[in-house]
Write a protein that binds this DNA or RNA. Structure first.
Lengths: 195, 195
DNA sequence: TGGTTTTTGTTGCTTAGGCAACACGGGAGC
DNA sequence: GCTCCCGTGTTGCCTAAGCAACAAAAACCA
């Protein structure tokens, strides 16, 4: 496995950058043509014009690629709302909830087949990103409990609520939903109230 | 310099294929923004996202890149008329003349500045491709003289006539021009007349 | 004019990627 | 049962590309 500079892609070998991009692009193309289950690693590498061995230098297997693709997608949703390089506010939290809802909604609509397969993968990736982000926020804030505890509780709660929202037949607007659950979420953070 | 499989690009290392493509694309982009003279090798490599040393592994310098770019362009014009993988006929010769005219016309219109600079480069590349193609044709045909001689005479003649046509203020249609000069060109080939 | 920057080619060393071959496992077809 | 085929991971060796540093030339600017 090549240098895993987790997320921190400061300056990375141009070759690595290129092949990752080629793989991701090929992945998107092939998944739209054959779907995920029918797709083989060969399909991806041939489309990308890279060697099969190179694929395995970057990803465990096609599931690993799917994982990082999901994560990228959600991170994009987060970045879109500029939540990544900022500190905690209630409004940012509200936007974060909205981001999760939107992402789940889109993910479900795209990956109709084998939903149950994907949902657990989506859940794992999204909760991980959520946890990391919340932890970063909480470490910059005064809390009544350990940030790790609060981050775990909050990330699970947000995801669970967002999932329920996405499953409910009669979809209320994301914004209204966010406003509705915000009071439930905030206490999870165990913030020290400002006088 | 990397493996120079002159034209014969049967199966070539995907990495080579990729970087050549990146360089060519970057070249086209930069030349449209800064022009050829102002452009530096750095500009190209930075745009292409490759290392400068890699550029020099593929091309002598930016002039070398220009050369092959011109050649590619003309070859494209030839392929467009399916003249590359076929044998000699008068009609193919006529189309070849048209191809040269079209290419020179386009080349001149694109590279307005420093025309005289470019024209000699264009001439060299086009005549070389012409020579190779004519030679291939003649080697499959019965001629009264050595194919090399006939190919030289014909390539020079075609280019000279096409150049004159492109310079003439009042442009007659390429097709009419081709019909007009065809009788002058055919004898250069020294074909053995079929009874 | 002289000094500073930029660009140019070039080189030695490191790393990512290509390639071929392999063992393994799961079907499909008799 | 038995092949035959195909996809999967993995490995060792080779080559292309990255990188840093260099000297020399060119361009720029006092």
């Amino acid at each position: 496995m090549l240098s895993n500079l987790k997320e921190g892609q400061e300056k990375l070998d141009p070759r690595v950058r290129r092949t990752r991009q080629l793989i991701e692009q090929a992945f998107m193309e092939v998944i739209n043509e054959k779907g995920f289950q029918e797709m083989t690693v060969r399909d991806i590498t041939e489309r990308a014009g890279i060697n099969r061995a190179t694929f395995y230098a970057h990803f465990q297997d096609k599931y690993g690629l799917l994982d990082q693709s999901i994560r990228q997608g959600f991170l994009q949703e987060v970045d879109k709302r500029m939540l990544n390089a900022c500190h905690f506010t209630v409004d940012n939290l509200r936007n974060l909830i909205i981001a999760v809802c939107e992402f789940i909604k889109n993910a479900n609509s795209k990956c109709k087949p084998a939903q149950s397969q994907f949902e657990t993968l989506v859940e794992a990736q999204v909760k991980e990103v959520l946890y990391d982000l919340l932890l970063k926020w909480l470490e910059q804030t005064r809390t009544n409990t350990e940030p790790e505890i609060a981050a775990t509780a909050t990330s699970w709660a947000i995801y669970g609520l967002a999932l329920q929202w996405s499953h409910s037949k009669r979809l209320e607007s994301v914004e209204k939903f966010a406003d509705e659950v915000l009071p439930l979420i905030v206490p999870n953070l165990q913030l020290v109230e400002a006088a």
